[in-house]
């Protein structure tokens, strides 16, 4: 009996040692996985940009893009995010929506900017989408919900425009799974704190839109597609308890007001 136990332990140990030894090899690099997925993400990003951004109403007015670039820049610099990789696009639409596309394309709808009462609220949403990008949620969601085969066929040009449209719709009008959303919210709070932005207005923004959900439901894509806003607001406040010691506004009051004015005119 002792001999059997000894032999069983030896076999288990042999397996574990083999596994451990093999894990020392960088298989990801050997199989070019990072390179392949990076290339695929870039191709998808370009395709979606062509299909969606260029066909939509992208706002390129400096008075709108510059203040938003400043907010994005502040969050990126404070959190060590390479801003040159993030491509910000502002789209003219009444919808209160923001989302991330592959290859770090960040889409903000003008409706969202109009609905934000202050820069902290808007910074919260931008941080949330940046968190999705930084944690590779976009590709994870696409692979999970669309499938690798379909994604490869899109990038190789073997799929129709309808599939591309449906895939964009999936990213723009449906949430990530609950855990990924929570992860992104918590990361967003971290980004805000490091950028000396108070996370509370972000929570208030969620509360505010949650209260008005029933009245303007059809315009609230960003809120409708995300988990219960009240619940989110609660854990944002909870994680934001370590508020930044010194809250520093990014834009001057005049710049923010002018941005809002510009939004009204559009």
């Amino acid at each position: 009996m002792k001999k059997i136990f000894f032999q069983a332990s030896l076999i288990i140990a042999l397996f574990l040692v083999t596994w451990f030894a093999l894990s020392k090899v960088d298989w990801i690099a050997i199989f070019y996985i990072e390179q392949v997925s990076k290339t695929m993400e870039e191709k998808l990003g370009d395709l979606f940009e062509d299909f969606f951004i260029k066909s939509g109403k992208e706002i390129q007015h400096k008075e709108v893009t510059l203040p938003l670039d400043s907010i994005l820049s502040k969050i990126c610099v404070s959190n060590g995010i390479d801003q040159s990789q993030v491509k910000l696009h502002i789209i003219e639409s009444d919808e209160i929506n923001a989302f991330a596309l592959p290859n770090k394309h960040l889409i903000l709808y003008s409706g969202l900017i109009s609905a934000s009462e202050n820069e902290a609220e808007l910074s919260g949403v931008i941080s949330h989408e940046l968190a999705h990008m930084e944690m590779n949620h976009v590709m994870k969601k696409l692979i999970k919900e669309v499938g690798l085969t379909v994604l490869i066929s899109i990038t190789t040009g073997n799929s129709g425009s309808e599939i591309i449209k449906e895939t964009i719709k999936l990213l723009s009008s449906s949430a990530y799974d609950r855990n990924l959303e929570k992860e992104a919210d918590i990361k967003a709070v971290e980004y805000l704190i490091k950028s000396n932005i108070d996370p509370e207005p972000f929570a208030n923004f969620l509360n505010k839109v949650a209260d008005s959900e029933s009245q303007v439901e059809k315009h609230l894509s960003w809120i409708n597609t995300h988990p219960a806003s009240k619940e989110r607001a609660e854990y944002i406040i909870e994680h934001g308890s370590g508020k930044p010691k010194k809250i520093q506004p990014i834009l001057t009051k005049e710049t923010w007001d002018r941005l809002k004015e510009n939004m009204k005119e559009m």
Binding site: L22, S23, W27, F31, N136, L148
Partner: peptide, 17 residues
């Protein structure tokens, strides 16, 4: 394939083992 996990060196080494 269907969940939130992503491929890692640990996964490949297990599959090869």
């Amino acid at each position: 394939i269907f969940g939130p996990e992503s491929v890692s060196n640990n996964f490949f080494s297990y599959i090869i083992a």
